[in-house]
């Protein structure tokens, strides 16, 4: 017959083992990140030199020559397509966020602004390949334009960045205390100036973090570019032409039979991973530090 203390002991042991299990779970959750970083360093770092940043994509190995090349072409292409996307996403995202915060509150406009936040969240859940197909249809059917180009790719990436910019800006604007707005109102400032020059500026660290996180996300996207901006063109020729990009390079050449391209893909995986992780981490940490300094 189990006594009361037996049952109590059993409960305690069970509880302890569950705590241990949950500890194991957190380790299991974190482990892949370190494993991935480790493998990227091992696989991509073995031949990585500074030439990666100065040389362009090499032609595939032939019996005659086998250049190592570098990632410069891909870096340029990624930079341009993401920069364009940022140009679309940031103004629209910030405008939408300001609308959601400044005109939210009562009645019809308030409901509209809440629906807007919901729309941004829903948009952020759309698979990136679907966004790629959407832009494809848009350009092919409605614009009859050249589908394969940096411009098309940037439209898709912009749509991916937009909800991120909008939501983080909205959150940042909402943390500005009401007293700041009241002080500005009491000085007889017009509403739009208060919104832009006082509230937005005051929320600037959060807004910048949002933009940087959106950039980190966009530079890693490959699926839309696969449909819209895929090429072997050796250099950037113009906005109506496609250009190589870091994320696509990894996909195309990770298991390429050509050794030099495969090496390039592996090195690119490392470079892209480090870039994205560092950008995400530092922008978040910088935000924490800056907002603490300004709240002083």
């Amino acid at each position: 017959m189990t006594t009361r203390s037996d049952r109590g002991l059993r409960r305690k042991i069970f509880s302890h083992s569950m705590v241990v299990l949950s500890g194991l779970a957190i380790v299991a959750v974190m482990l892949p990140l370190f494993w991935i970083i480790y493998e990227c360093v091992v696989l991509g770092g073995s031949h990585l030199t500074l030439n990666y940043f100065t040389q362009g994509t090499p032609p595939p190995c032939s019996p005659i020559s086998c250049e190592a090349g570098g990632g410069l072409t891909m870096i340029q292409g990624s930079f341009i397509v993401v920069a364009l996307a940022t140009l679309y996403a940031v103004p629209i995202g910030i405008a939408a966020a300001i609308f959601a915060v400044e005109y939210g509150g009562g009645g019809a406009l308030g409901a509209l602004s809440r629906a807007l936040s919901m729309a941004a969240d829903v948009l952020s859940g759309v698979p990136s390949i679907v966004i790629g197909v959407f832009v494809y249809v848009l350009i092919l059917y409605y614009d009859h334009g050249i589908v394969f180009s940096v411009t098309s790719g940037s439209l898709a990436l912009g749509a991916i960045m937009l909800p991120i910019v909008m939501r983080t800006t909205e959150e940042a604007l909402r943390t500005v205390p009401h007293s700041v707005r009241e002080a500005a109102l009491a000085l007889g400032m017009t509403r739009w100036k208060i919104s832009l020059r006082i509230v937005l500026i005051s929320a600037l660290p959060g807004v910048l973090t949002g933009i940087l996180l959106a950039i980190a996300r966009a530079v890693g996207e490959a699926a839309p570019l696969l449909l819209l901006d895929n090429t072997t063109l050796p250099r950037f020729l113009g906005f109506n032409y496609p250009a190589q990009s870091l994320s696509l390079g990894i996909y195309l050449w990770a298991d390429s039979p050509y050794k030099n391209l495969q090496n390039l893909a592996w090195e690119t995986a490392l470079v892209l991973l480090i870039f994205v992780l560092v950008l995400s981490l530092t922008s978040r940490l910088a935000l924490n530090r800056l907002s603490r300094k300004w709240k002083a």
């Binding site: 700041v180 009241e182 002080a183 500026i201 005051s202 600037l204 300004w294 709240k295």
Partner: peptide, 10 residues
């Protein structure tokens, strides 16, 4: 002028 001082912190 308000109850709690509210200078523009930035």
């Amino acid at each position: 002028v308000f109850q709690k001082p509210n200078p523009f912190a930035t």
